[in-house]
């Protein structure tokens, strides 16, 4: 690999057509001898450091051919988050600076089309949401629901979403549920009120809105918890994917006790059957 010549230049002398905003926790090149500076550039294009004060300096890498530019860029920033890639590919000078296919072979392998499709809409979302996506390192596939919706349709929910302080898994699920409910025509008030609370509660409430028939069915089944189960059996309603039912925990210490429990359970079966017939 070529040794890359670097120099420090004043950021005011650089062009800032390539939008690549700094996120709260910028990715750095781990284990590299060079410290990633607060700002840096390829040729006269500023790559990062928009909020830097006047007089700050950027590490400048000479402008080269579009493939080498990708190599240089990769050396100082081997890991990019989805919002960072989206900002880059939306910049007017992206394709003049970088070999597009080579760029996508370094970041977002096999996701070129999906990233390109997502890029235009994603950068219109508020910076707070983009920061969350960046910090949690949310992947392109996880953000797929956002391709079906515009920022205008869901901007009311972003603040509430962030207030739930979701983990990556919770957040991805909440985002998808919000997109689905919005596209289903659920009112804004209903969605917002479902998100009033922590992520765990929001997720539960949003599922009630998204799966109303199944929730009714589950509620109905939960009613069977009131059957006269033997006292040595712990009953717990559970939904496991496409199946809902009861998790039964039994404790016995003798064959007599087991027999007694089985007999009791047979009575529960009859009770259950008769309830079903009377519906």
């Amino acid at each position: 690999m070529n040794v890359i010549k670097r120099s420090l230049v004043e950021i005011q002398t650089l062009k800032s057509d390539l939008q690549f905003p700094e996120f709260p926790s910028p990715t750095r090149a781990p284990g590299k001898s060079i410290q990633v500076p607060l700002a840096w550039s390829i040729g006269d294009q500023l790559i990062s450091g928009f909020t830097l004060s006047k007089g700050a300096q950027a590490l400048s890498i000479p402008l080269s051919d579009t493939k080498s530019n990708v190599d240089y860029f990769y050396e100082v920033n081997p890991k990019l988050s989805v919002p960072q890639v989206c900002f880059l590919i939306n910049s007017p000078v992206f394709s003049t600076l970088f070999d597009t296919d080579y760029f996508f072979s370094c970041w977002g392998k096999g996701q070129k089309e999906n990233l390109s499709a997502l890029a235009t809409s994603l950068i219109t979302f508020p910076m707070e949401l983009l920061c969350w996506i960046h910090e949690k390192d949310v992947g392109v596939q996880d953000l797929a629901p956002l391709k079906a919706i515009s920022f205008e349709q869901i901007h009311h929910f972003i603040e509430s979403f962030l207030k739930t302080r979701p983990s990556k898994t919770e957040g991805v699920q909440i985002l998808e549920l919000v997109v689905d409910l919005t596209l289903l025509g659920t009112s804004q008030e209903e969605i917002l009120s479902a998100m009033d609370g922590g992520a765990h509660i929001a997720l539960k409430n949003l599922k009630v809105l998204r799966y109303p028939n199944t929730m009714d069915r589950d509620q109905d089944l939960k009613g069977k918890l009131l059957l006269s189960w033997p006292s040595n059996i712990q009953t717990k309603f559970q939904r496991r994917g496409d199946r809902a039912g009861f998790d039964l925990q039994l404790f016995v210490s003798s064959s007599t006790e087991l027999k007694k429990t089985v007999n009791h359970l047979e009575k529960v079966v009859e009770e259950w059957k008769s309830l079903s017939q009377n519906r």
Partner: peptide
């Protein structure tokens, strides 16, 4: 030249 999954428009 296409590789990977198809997008909706593809």
């Amino acid at each position: 030249e296409h590789t990977g999954e198809l997008t909706a428009s593809q």
